[in-house]
Design a protein around this nucleic acid. Structure first.
Lengths: 182, 182
DNA sequence: ACCTGAACACCGTTCAAGT
DNA sequence: ACCTGAACACCGTTCAAGT
């Protein structure tokens, strides 16, 4: 029996591989092997391997990254929104986002990461602005908060021993909250 | 005339390529072309391309990363040391470090980055400890400060428009200092 | 001691031919 | 409309042969 695939099947498989291994996992020949077809069939659906990677990350942007931000925008009370953002920031970051951070030198990954970061910074700045800061101060505070999130996510992914248990994570979150509400 | 190279020449060339392009720039065939020899000659000096990348990054660790930390340790006044660290943190991060951050998914890059981060966190925690914090609090504060440094370096490398001019950098640094000295 | 040059494996890409 | 299979380019690696 001959397997028939569509663009979507390739894209989902590519996103799974990306979550597992990062951009190097999105490779035509191994994916084709896994999907039970030959490399040639891939080029019926896509122009190139880069187009596949871009499509997979676009899927993530629409289904996950944007969805989270939209849910947050539902919270009209700025204090509640900042609290929700704080909880999101101190809980475990999604593995796809971690992979994006860890492979930012890939041009396609870099573009997606920059778009996602821009949106998140806007949402954060809006929350700080709505809770009373001037636009410029809100933007700076958003940058500080998001840089902290990115830096910590990065470092802990690199070395989980930095925050090994729930107690250390809680102590870090308390200290960070004290520092950021100064 | 036949070119003769040693291990050091390959290592320097590899580090230059890494600074320019990241790990993908450390490729045997293109480097050999640049150096005017064939690929085969490379394997006289090194077991593998990975050994070359590791050697290049080791060079960076010894000549740059460690050197900076040792210079800082010379400052015995903890306040002066924290100030020097603050200046280092808000000035432009060295391009090799940025490349390390942007390619952390590479196993060899990841190892080097983790080692360097561990050392920097130790030095930071020691500075905070020497200036009066308890060991646990000093470690948390060090993590907050270093995560901020890493996160900002990362985001600004991705999108320089986040802090486009000297004025915005200064305003950010002021706000950050206010926040971190809370 | 250091380099050449040819070989092989692996992945990206193309394309004529099949169903 | 979707897939096969063979071809080519490119890079990592090996190794016998050269100087």
């Amino acid at each position: 029996m001959i397997r028939r695939l569509d663009r979507e099947a390739w894209t989902r498989a590519a996103l799974d591989a990306f979550e597992e291994t990062g951009p190097s996992g999105v490779a035509v020949v191994p994916l084709a092997r896994d999907l039970g077809v030959t490399r040639g069939s891939f080029y019926w659906h896509f122009e190139s391997r880069d187009e596949l990677l871009a499509a997979a990350l676009e899927l993530w942007e629409h289904e996950h990254s944007d969805a989270i931000l939209e849910a947050l925008q539902e919270l009209h009370d700025p204090r509640a929104r900042l609290e929700a953002l704080g909880r999101a920031a101190t809980s475990k970051p999604p593995s796809i986002f971690i992979q994006l951070l860890r492979a930012a030198d890939d041009p396609i990954v870099g573009r997606v990461l920059e778009r996602a970061s821009r949106r998140r910074l806007e949402v954060l700045a809006k929350a700080y602005g709505d809770s009373g800061l001037s636009p410029a101060a809100a933007r700076r505070r958003a940058l500080i908060a998001y840089a902290q999130y990115v830096g910590l996510a990065f470092l802990v992914a690199e070395d989980p021993e930095l925050l090994p248990d729930e107690r250390s994570r809680a102590a870090y979150a308390r200290e960070l909250a004290a520092v950021l509400n100064a």
